[in-house]
Amino acid sequence: MLRLIVARLIGAVPTLFLIVAAAFFLLRLAPGGPFDAERALDPDVAQNLRRIYRLDRPLAEQFWLYLVSLIEGDFGPSLHWRDFSVNELFAKALPVSAALGAEALLAALLIGVALGLAGAGRETGLGARLVDGAAFFGVVLPAFVVAPLLQLGFGLTLHVLPVGGWEGGAWRNQILPVFTLALPQIAIVARLMQEGLRDALALPHIRTLRAFGLPAWHIQAHALRAAVLPALSYLGLAAANVLTGSVVVETIFGIPGMGRYFVDGALGRDYTLVMGTVVIVAALVVFFNLMVDIGYAWLDPRVRDE
């Protein structure tokens, strides 16, 4: 088990390196630069700026310098918000986004699994039909439709929840964005659990348990463990989906998270800011996939031995 974790961690290093390299060079391929404005800067000023931010060095050297500072944990200065370093910007925004994402994932897991179990009965039963229907809407409705509807309903009509803002993470402000972000994930997890449990109950070794007259709860426990595996492997992907989904949700609800840096940074060619968000997102995705691998190995001895 420990060997698996160490091996995966070491395997993550080249993955992260490739992502950083690809993002770094692709960004430089995009036309324009961080200091372009409506009115062109004085050539000397531009030259000075480029020298200060070391953008006048050869590209390979810039890449090397970036890697070195990255290893030291320094994302560099923001090229757009010139009074702040990327680290300072993230120190404020990351906890907000992390809270939002973690809550959405947790909701997806809890509600999704519960719904999946409820819908795992007979295919024509009421539970199964409800889960089927809910899952369908959850998947097809995009966040930019769900969010305004929720704002209209709960904010403007019922006046029970605020339509936006963060207020330092007040629980009332969190409910709508977390739900919007979690909805498609809830639907997918529910479907995976539902199908996983149905398939598991038809497995030959479940029939073996029935042949021994073992109690229903014992049989359910065996089936559940087999059914969790497909849902678990989806969680890595779900984490990535939540991260990208948060860009839209944070914008709609006006939440001061990482999402806006993604968009603003890319539009303003704020090289260091975009690179910082890319590194953070990539590291999170790698981390969640590692968690999934560990969970999988913990549940399935066949994986453990590979």
Binding site: L203, P204, H205, R207, T208, L209, A211, F212, H222, R225, A226, L299, D300, P301, R302
Partner: peptide
């Protein structure tokens, strides 16, 4: 008691 044909699938792979 019952013994099934496939010893591969008759036992739960996730439990010792």
């Amino acid at each position: 008691a019952f013994i099934f044909q496939e010893p591969m699938s008759a036992l739960d792979p996730l439990f010792s």
